[in-house]
């Protein structure tokens, strides 16, 4: 597929608020991205199939009442669950950023150890220390290359992006041995780390939310569904970096671009 033919569907609802910058990042790379209110998708269910990439951007969908992302997740699965499943079955990538990650977990799409789960298999719990925090973190890329969203990034590479959330502590139920399966399936994509790439080992502020095993982002076993708490769309241009004014010759882009580029190249290759 040619770059110019790729269509990105960015879903929004009351409370979504990172849709515009997410669209901007995709479009800067030469693909067509459209923002749809869920009501529009519900009315025209065939819309989804006209796109190759589906994105749940950051924000506070439906005010994050009940639990972060829970209402949008249930609404989506109830209203267009079949279309979503078809989308996944075709190997089309789904990206969830921040609130989008929360939506994917609440929808049972991530970690997705046994396909789509009716109940969430993991949770993005309230931060430890508690509270909303907006700060830049370092991430180490852990995936061996099957994740469609990071396959251009070498394993072990350290990236920098900001987080901004109050519920980002990734946790799994202990008893089900899910963690070993996550590792075995190579589903862990990003872990919070120190500037030099050493693991954060749960220590604040390198690990900004107390996330288990410093997990910042995971994908499904196929590598086609990916959720992460950090915001790549806020680390897309160099002038979004927190210290670009210190650089004598700043790069043109931030690390966030690698993710958008990876997805697009994946789609170009696959379809």
């Amino acid at each position: 597929m040619k770059r110019g033919e790729i269509r990105v569907c960015i879903i929004r609802v009351g409370g979504t608020n990172c849709d515009a910058e997410t669209k901007r990042s995709f479009e800067d790379l030469g693909v067509k991205a459209s923002i749809y209110h869920v009501n529009e998708i519900f009315r025209k269910r065939e819309l989804l199939a006209e796109h190759q990439i589906l994105v749940f951007p950051g924000g506070f969908s439906y005010g994050d009442y009940v639990r972060a992302g829970a209402i949008l997740a249930k609404t989506i699965m109830a209203r267009i669950g079949a279309e979503i499943k078809a989308f996944i079955d075709e190997g089309k990538p789904i990206l969830g950023i921040c609130n989008g990650f929360q939506v994917l977990v609440e929808a049972g799409l991530l970690p997705g150890l046994n396909g789509i789960s009716q109940y969430p298999e993991a949770a993005l719990a309230t931060n430890v220390p508690s509270g909303y925090r907006c700060m830049w973190v370092y991430l180490r890329h852990e995936n061996s290359g099957k994740c469609a969203f990071t396959w251009l990034i070498p394993r072990g590479a350290v990236l920098r992006m900001p987080v901004a959330h109050a519920e980002g502590r990734f946790v799994l139920p202990k008893e089900k041995d899910l963690f070993n399966r996550l590792i075995g399936n190579d589903q862990i994509v990003f872990r919070y780390c120190c500037e030099n790439g050493e693991p954060a080992e749960g220590r604040f502020p390198a690990n900004p939310n107390g996330s288990f095993y410093d997990i910042a982002g995971i994908c499904n076993p196929d590598g086609t569904i990916f959720g992460l708490m950090p915001h790549p769309e806020r680390a897309y241009y160099y002038w979004q970096l927190p210290d670009w004014t210190r650089m004598k010759n700043p790069p043109r882009y931030g690390d966030g671009k690698l993710i958008f580029e990876s997805i697009i190249k994946y789609v170009m290759k696959k379809f």
Binding site: N17, C18, A20, E21, R24, G58, G131, Y132, R133, C134, M135, P162, A164, E233, R234, Y236, Y237, W239, Q240, P242, D243, T245, R246
Partner: peptide, 20 residues
């Protein structure tokens, strides 16, 4: 101040905090 999001919309070129 970090309990406020100061870079949503992705257009904050100089943020409330700077440097190392």
């Amino acid at each position: 101040v970090r309990t406020y999001d100061h870079e949503v919309k992705g257009n904050t070129v100089l943020k409330p905090f700077c440097g190392k």
